[in-house]
Simulated scan of single mutants.
Amino acid sequence: MLLFSMLAAAIAPGIALLAYFYWKDRYDAEPLPIVIKLFLTGALTVLPVMIVQRALLLWLGESPFAFSFIVSEGVEEFIKWFVLFHIIYNHTEFDEPYDGIVYATAVSLGFATLENVLYAFTEPVTFGMLLVRALLPVSGHALFGVFMGYSMGRAKFSSGKQIKLHLVLSLLLPVAAHGLFDFIMKTVPSRWLWIMVPFMFILWLRGIRSVNRANSVSPFRLIKREEEVKS
């Protein structure tokens, strides 16, 4: 019973956050099978990420900056980006800017959920510690996915040089945010909570603004308004 409770506590935050961003899609909800597929694909990337990170750690050492922005977050966000770009970027269901956020958070939260499960069963943790992880690393992964997906959505519906610009930003923004997250955790160990709480607050504000902006330029917005007027 305890094992089941720990498993549920490790999985629930990722599922809840994915449901939140999925339901934030105001105009054209994405097919659940594709969202679930990307969630599971994100979980499957944990093993290759761990292997690459171990190799880089042996090569670059444990410098806080190198670990935060290259070994840990650089590898994680690049592989998420790679999966997202090659599986969904040219998919026919990616037909509005907000779709990038849905699909990117699915990949990110799949990764974060399996990472959370492994942490719960390989480390001496309590439910309180899992709650802290739900509020910080897991929600952090969701927000890094929002930044990635928002920029990829802009790239998808841009033209000319703007496409490359937003594709680059779709990788650089989550790497920067995620790297800064880990850098704070590593370099301010005694008072990290006083810095991390306002930092997460800023990330959430930026994430919600990205959600609203992506919805506001949906091509289905006017169609839905017309349907509402007719009804």
Rank of each mutant, 00 (worst) to 15 (best):
D28R: 14
I195C: 08
F78Y: 08
K161L: 11
V125Y: 00
L17W: 12
R54P: 01
L171Y: 10
S159A: 14
S5L: 15
L17G: 08
A155V: 09
L58P: 00
G145T: 09
W194V: 14
G100I: 02
V132L: 07
K161I: 08
K80A: 00
L57G: 01
M148K: 07
V35Y: 09
E228A: 11
V197P: 09
V75F: 00
P137C: 06
L3G: 15
K156N: 06
I101D: 10
S210L: 10
E73T: 02
I195Y: 08
R206H: 07
N90V: 04
G61Y: 00
S5Y: 12
P124L: 03
N215D: 05
L203D: 03
F65I: 01
E226K: 15
L17F: 15
D95C: 13
F127D: 01
L17D: 02
L193Y: 14
S151Y: 13
I223M: 08
I36G: 11
P64S: 13
Y20V: 11
G179S: 03
Y98C: 13
F144I: 02
F157T: 03
M129T: 14
L136A: 09
V188W: 14
I51F: 00
T113F: 02
V117G: 06
S159W: 01
P124I: 10
Y22A: 14
L143P: 03
P33R: 04
F157W: 11
T45N: 07
G149T: 07
G128R: 07
H166F: 06
H141W: 01
D28V: 05
F67M: 13
T41Y: 14
V75L: 00
F121H: 04
Q162G: 09
H141S: 13
E30P: 05
I88C: 09
T105R: 12
D99Q: 12
F4M: 15
M196W: 11
W81K: 08
A155H: 07
